[in-house]
Amino acid sequence: MRALRCSVCAEELRPEHRSLRCPRGHAFDLAKQGYVNLLHAKVPAGTADTADMVAARVAFLAAGHYAPVAERVAEQAARLTRSGLIVDAGAGTGYYLARVLDRLPAATGLALDVSALALRRAARAHERLGAAVWNLWRPWPVADGTASVVLNVFAPRNGPEFHRVLRPGGALVVVSPQAGHLRELASVVDLLEVDDRKQERIEAALGGYFELVAREPYTRTLTLTPDEVRQVVGMGPNAHHPERLTRLDRLDEPREATLSVAIATYRRVP
């Protein structure tokens, strides 16, 4: 966690017993699960993953339905760097970052997420992974130019901070849902739809900071058990709207659903 900075004064943080402390005396306790919480304000309701969302995510990802996406992210990262720090912005349980670190034995990882419950899992997802609770919309407690690659998988995009923490020549890998992602499940539950202008909004968020190198669409058909349908819906933003999920309780047959994402690589603009 040498790249972390004090979220109060921006000084370097160093380990001291079971905490991280800066030269000015600000200290942050390390949780027994291995992560550190650098926030000093409450997280707005409906922002962080809940315990139920984390449990759903762990169960669904363990089934391997998104494993091909994780492998493609790891392949992209391996093309971009062989070592250095990989920062996963919105890392959740650390599933994607752990795959990248498996591919890059000389790299280390930093998972950032607003959910402490998710980072309990992330901190244990890989031996070379550190985890810190933080709100991605605020300036990050990470030193300038310390990352070789930033990952952003189904998570908020903060272009200025992506740019600041990346070293010159660093790169960004973004995974975002495409129109039609999980569309078949709309007949089962009132899903939040993917914005038709999502790609346009991504480019607007990154414009001036990054240039697109490549974008790979990835689509496949999933066959999901009733429990897996409940998990994939319950691990995402729809879970913050429980009134949308009542029909899931009655689901008793497998369903097909389309996994449709774009995996894009961007180069940092100097």
Rank of each mutant, 00 (worst) to 15 (best):
N152G: 05
A123Q: 04
L129V: 01
L185I: 07
T146K: 07
A205P: 15
A131T: 05
R157W: 09
S187A: 12
R183G: 04
V194L: 06
Q199T: 15
P139C: 09
E200V: 13
L192S: 11
L112P: 09
R121W: 05
A143D: 10
V165G: 04
R121C: 08
S148R: 09
G170R: 03
Q199C: 07
V165I: 12
S115M: 00
K198C: 13
L112F: 12
N158W: 01
G130R: 06
Q199H: 14
V149R: 08
P156M: 04
A147Q: 09
P141D: 14
G159V: 08
A179N: 04
N158G: 02
P156C: 10
L151V: 02
E193W: 01
L185H: 06
Q178W: 01
N152H: 10
S176E: 12
F162H: 10
E127S: 12
L172Y: 08
V133C: 12
R201C: 08
R201G: 03
A123P: 00
L110F: 00
H181Y: 14
G169L: 03
L136N: 05
W134Y: 12
V114I: 12
P168G: 01
N158M: 04
K198Q: 15
D190N: 11
V173A: 08
D113M: 11
L172R: 00
A143N: 08
A123G: 03
A179C: 06
V149H: 09
E161F: 03
L185C: 10
L110A: 03
E203R: 13
P141I: 13
A118K: 05
L110I: 04
R128D: 02
A118G: 07
H163W: 13
A123M: 01
A116F: 07
G109M: 00
S115G: 04
V153K: 04
G169D: 10
F154M: 15
V174I: 15
H126I: 02
R128T: 05
A171L: 00
N158I: 03
Q178R: 14
V150A: 08
H181G: 05
R197V: 11
S115D: 10
V150Q: 08
D190S: 13
H126A: 00
A123S: 13
A125L: 06
F154Q: 11
L117T: 14
W140V: 03
L119G: 04
P168V: 03
W137C: 02
V114K: 01
F154H: 14
A116T: 05
P141S: 09
E200N: 03
N135E: 14
G109I: 02
H181M: 09
R128S: 06
V175M: 03
L117F: 03
E193L: 14
G145R: 11
V150P: 09
G159M: 05
G109H: 08
V173P: 09
L136I: 03
R128V: 02
D196C: 04
E200M: 10
R157K: 14
A116E: 10
L119I: 01
V153H: 11
P139E: 12
A131K: 04
A155K: 01
W137E: 15
Q178N: 08
F162L: 09
R167Q: 14
L151G: 00
L192F: 08
G180P: 07
V142F: 06
L185K: 06
V188F: 12
L151E: 00
W134K: 01
R121M: 07
D113L: 10
V114T: 07
D195R: 02
P141G: 09
T146D: 13
D195P: 15
V133L: 07
E127C: 00
